[in-house]
Design a protein around this nucleic acid. Structure first.
Lengths: 341, 341
DNA sequence: CTGTTAGCGCTTTCAC
DNA sequence: GTGAAAGCGCTAACAG
């Protein structure tokens, strides 16, 4: 610990500039913020010192006094592929605006995993960010200090502004696809059952069966919890059954990929022996070999829409609920049953 | 939840808690921060109010007084795939620590694109974040107020702590691969020539030729600037030549993918008529059809290493320069010339 | 044990 | 035009 205890590089503050320019702190502030009522000569001198010293106003300090910071917050539980795709859309949409992006993953520390969205919001909202986009929040967010838009909230479209995907329709489409291929024993690997998105997907799965006049075999429904690690066991059981399903609709891509992994381990070929379809269309779905057939959520567009909506709200616009369409993306992991090579 | 509903949506501050608990602001602060020297009864009462009011300490305000915030900053120019892969590694490595991640893209607003790293650092460093990881900075960062580690700095390994990839070795490997396949007219689509990483890759390209006793045809070297949009024109020229190259080594995946796109547009088949190899191994490389053969930078691992190094520096450890190995990833876009189907 | 007093770096009245 | 003063929400001495 005997390193730089000397505090070698204190950041240059507004006071340093003021002293160097021979003016008051207040004057520097005005110059830097382009307020008028400052002599041109003074302004020029101060700017000179600013450049010379490399002064940058502290976002933190100024955010405590200002109302607008020109920063949009994106709060996520974790930087996983789903959130990242969204973030890319947000980033893209904010490119030509005056806003900076601050993405915060505030549930890193174990323990109170739940409520990360409320916590992040309290810690940064109202001060550091002008508005926030919250990715898959699992609690209701009302009475927030800044405008927020929730993307795919797991509690359903309850908050004021939300962007989500047609989970029910997408799931029905996935299941229909399997059924139309001729599959009659199709399993469903559910998501986190405490989340609406997972429930909607299960509903869609059932609806497709009903539409086709087929009965759902409830023993073919397994819990995958949206995470590969949580799904592994259930997948094993599913594939070890004597009357193994010929196809499976996994509630998201991560668990669908896990199905493929386990199936391959068991010596099963996908799609010859088992058809698999996922949900999300993460980059990993396209990157997998064989390419994962899945239901696409337009993540990028959702990020863009979230920005547009938030910006309009920041401008006094009304909240909205935007539902994006889901789309079937055919790749290589589904085919008719028994159509072995 | 019937507390202070008269107030609009002002965030609840430490003062609100103090008043409600009938103690001083300082006492609340001590309780919340677990300082000792507080009566158990007082502590309990305050905590009760905290829960009831849903108080969360403002990261901003406390960061102005505290030295440690338990937040690591990741500064990027933009949230593009390259940065995102890194971010995932960082996120992964920070999972089980007490640190939160704050990713900041501070060059969104057009204009002063350059110097974003310095700007972000000045605006957030020293106060909001305990340390920072900077992704592909293009300026030298010394005299910073907090420990930083640079990932793949485009100015070369000059800063105190840097993680980078063996650009020279990787480029040589890529070119060797093409040459060993039998290609004799191989083009190089350079990156941003003002950046060392791009220079190293060109050097590697030339070295591979020298090793094989081959001369480099300088007219086969084009500028791609690392961005698809900047490369389009040059690629057109390259492919419209009468003595079109049989293979091309693009300085990164984004431009390699653009080569494939343009080639396909021209009616050329990849790899039958043209072999293409990239650099980076972004998810898009694996996701592309045909899969892009490329040189892999272990982005995830680099993120992890950056965290480890930063954490150790935060703990008084010394700076380091870590060079990661590049690796050839064979997919579907390279094959022997003239081996048409 | 607890409250009072200073600020952190900045912006914003409001005098001069 | 410019500066002095009053905070923003919080923590860190220092008194009581």
């Amino acid at each position: 610990m005997t390193v730089g205890d000397q505090a070698p590089h204190r950041r240059v503050t507004i006071r340093d500039v003021a002293v160097a320019a021979g003016v008051s702190v207040a004057t520097v502030s005005k110059v830097v913020n382009g307020r008028d009522g400052i002599a041109a000569s003074t302004s020029a001198r101060v700017m000179g010192v600013v450049d010379e010293l490399g002064y940058e106003t502290s976002l933190i300090a100024s955010s405590m006094r200002k109302s607008r910071t020109q920063v949009i917050g994106v709060f996520v539980a974790e930087f996983e592929p789903f959130a990242q795709q969204l973030l890319q859309g947000v980033s893209y949409a904010l490119r030509d605006t005056q806003y900076d992006i601050l993405a915060y993953a505030g549930s890193v520390s174990a323990g109170d995993h739940a409520g990360w969205e409320r916590r992040s919001l309290s810690r940064l909202g109202g001060t550091l960010v002008d508005g926030a986009i919250i990715v898959t929040p699992t609690v209701n967010l009302d009475e927030t200090s800044v405008p927020i838009v929730a993307i795919d909230p797991h509690t359903g479209p309850t908050g004021p502004a939300v962007i989500d995907t047609d989970n029910f329709g997408g799931a029905r489409m996935a299941t229909e696809h399997l059924i139309s291929l001729g599959h009659r024993r199709v399993a469903h690997l559910r998501g986190r059952t405490d989340l609406v998105s997972a429930q909607r997907r299960e509903d869609g799965f059932r609806a497709a069966h009903a539409d086709a006049g087929l009965a759902v075999d409830d023993t073919l429904i397994f819990d995958g919890g949206y995470r590969a690690s949580l799904a592994t066991r259930a997948i094993g059981e599913m594939l070890d059954r004597d009357d193994r399903p010929t196809a499976v609709f996994a509630a998201n891509d991560m668990t669908a990929l896990e199905v493929i992994r386990i199936a391959t381990e068991r010596g099963l070929r996908v799609p010859e022996d088992l058809s698999v379809i996922g949900f999300d269309d993460l980059p990993a779905a396209a990157g997998n070999r064989p390419g994962l057939t899945t239901i696409r959520q337009p993540l990028h567009e959702m990020g863009v829409s979230a920005v547009r909506l938030l910006l309009s709200m920041l401008d006094g616009g009304a909240t909205e609920h935007i539902r994006m369409p889901a789309e079937l993306v055919l790749r290589d992991t589904t085919r008719a049953p028994g159509a072995s090579a």
